[in-house]
Simulated scan of single mutants.
Amino acid sequence: MCAAVTGLRRPPEGLTDSKLLTPKRRDALAAVLGDWVTCHALGHASPEEIDDLGMTAALRLAAVRALEALPVVPDAVILDGKHNYLGGPWHVRTVIKGDQSCVSVAAASVLAKVRRDTMMAELGATTAAYEPFAFGDNAGYPSPVHRAALEEWGPTPHHRVSWSYLDALPRWRHLKKIRVPVDTAAPGSTEDGDGVQLGLDF
């Protein structure tokens, strides 16, 4: 999760939703975004926290960590998507496809995606035990290579074990964690504040 605070300067050319950019273009943009944004910060939730809390609460946890790591306190948060999983005490405005219409959200999208890809590559290089999963070369659970590795080796400590992918893995189904869903996200406001605005994306 990335929180990016931007000013009124012209954004780098081609800045948009990270999913619409090639890896090479994302890396090039990330290299200049660090200087272009006023500031930015990253927040993470671990696989264990996602399993324990559920995705909505884990998203909020990662977002709060990113916001609290900023050197400034934003007056308003522009949240990508239609669901306000962040809530108070921030003034939140949700924008569907905000990473295509808001430069702060687009900047957060690119910075978060590049950091995530870097972490996956680092994880893939950590130990030969993870080599079958090709962490650095695929997007995760849906890829054929990753699914084949899961069937053979089972989930690693870096996999969520409360997710349904384990249902399709008879050898490892017993590892699935059953969690009673609890939505702990606060309702929050949808009003804009004046002053600093912040784009939040993951």
Rank of each mutant, 00 (worst) to 15 (best):
Asp167Asn: 15
Ala168Ile: 02
Met120Tyr: 00
Pro12Thr: 10
Pro132Ile: 05
Thr6Trp: 01
Asp137Lys: 10
Asp183Trp: 00
Ser189Met: 07
Asp75Tyr: 02
Leu20Tyr: 03
Cys39Thr: 15
His158Asp: 05
Thr38Asn: 04
Asn138Leu: 12
Pro47Phe: 03
Thr184Pro: 00
Arg10Lys: 13
Ala108Ile: 03
Thr184Tyr: 00
Ala57Cys: 11
Leu166Gly: 06
Tyr130Trp: 15
Asp167Leu: 15
Glu68Trp: 01
Ala186Met: 06
Gln100His: 09
Asp194Met: 11
Pro23Ala: 05
Leu29Thr: 07
Asp99Trp: 00
Asp201Cys: 14
Gly195Val: 04
Arg116Thr: 04
Gly193Arg: 06
Gly54Val: 01
Thr6Tyr: 01
Asp194Ile: 14
Arg147Leu: 12
Val72Phe: 07
Gly199Tyr: 01
Glu49Asn: 08
Cys39Pro: 02
Asp51Thr: 07
His83Thr: 14
Met119Tyr: 09
Tyr141Pro: 04
His174Met: 10
Leu175Val: 09
Ala129Met: 13
Leu61Gln: 02
Lys176Asp: 03
Pro181Glu: 04
Gly54Pro: 00
Phe135His: 04
Leu150Arg: 01
Gly43Pro: 00
Asp75Asn: 13
Ala63Val: 03
Val32Glu: 15
Arg179Pro: 02
Gln197Arg: 15
Ala108Met: 09
Tyr165Cys: 09
Leu29His: 04
Val161Gly: 01
Gly7Pro: 03
Glu48Trp: 01
Arg10Glu: 09
Leu21Thr: 01
His159Pro: 07
Ser104Thr: 10
Thr38Ser: 14
His91Pro: 03
Ala128Lys: 07
Ala69Asp: 12
Val37Met: 13
Leu166Gln: 03
Arg60Ala: 10
Asp52Tyr: 02
Thr126Ala: 14
Val196Leu: 15
Arg9Ala: 11
Ala28Gln: 12
Ala168Leu: 10
Ala139Trp: 02
Leu175Ser: 07
Asp35Pro: 02
Gly140Val: 08
Leu200Thr: 05
Met119His: 09
Leu169Asp: 06
Pro170Tyr: 04
Ala106Pro: 00
Leu79Phe: 09
Val95Leu: 15
Thr126Phe: 11
Lys113Arg: 15
Trp36Asp: 08
Lys82Leu: 12
Asn138Gln: 13
Ser18Pro: 00
Phe202Arg: 01
Gly140Asp: 11
Ala63Ile: 02
Leu150Met: 13
Met120Val: 10
Asp35Asn: 10
Leu150His: 01
Cys2Tyr: 02
Ala30Pro: 00
Ala139Asp: 11
His40Pro: 02
Pro187Asn: 06
Leu21Met: 04
Cys2His: 01
Leu15Pro: 01
Arg9Asn: 08
Ala129Thr: 08
Gly195Glu: 08
Trp153Gly: 13
Pro181His: 09
Asp117Gly: 12
Gly88Leu: 08
Val161Leu: 08
His91Cys: 14
Leu86Thr: 06
Ala106Asn: 04
Ala4Gly: 09
Cys2Ile: 05
Trp90Ser: 12
Val110Ser: 03
Ala62Val: 03
Thr190Ala: 14
Ala186Lys: 09
Arg65Leu: 04
Ser164Val: 11
Val114Met: 04
Val145Gly: 07
Tyr165Arg: 08
Pro132Glu: 05
Ala57Glu: 00
Trp172Phe: 15
Arg60Pro: 00
Ala45Glu: 00
Trp153Val: 14
Ala129Gln: 14
Gly140Ser: 14
Asp137Glu: 14
Leu61His: 00
Ala134Phe: 05
Phe133Cys: 10
Thr22Ile: 09
Gly34Asn: 03
His83Leu: 15
Ala121Gly: 13
Ser143Ile: 03
Ala4Val: 11
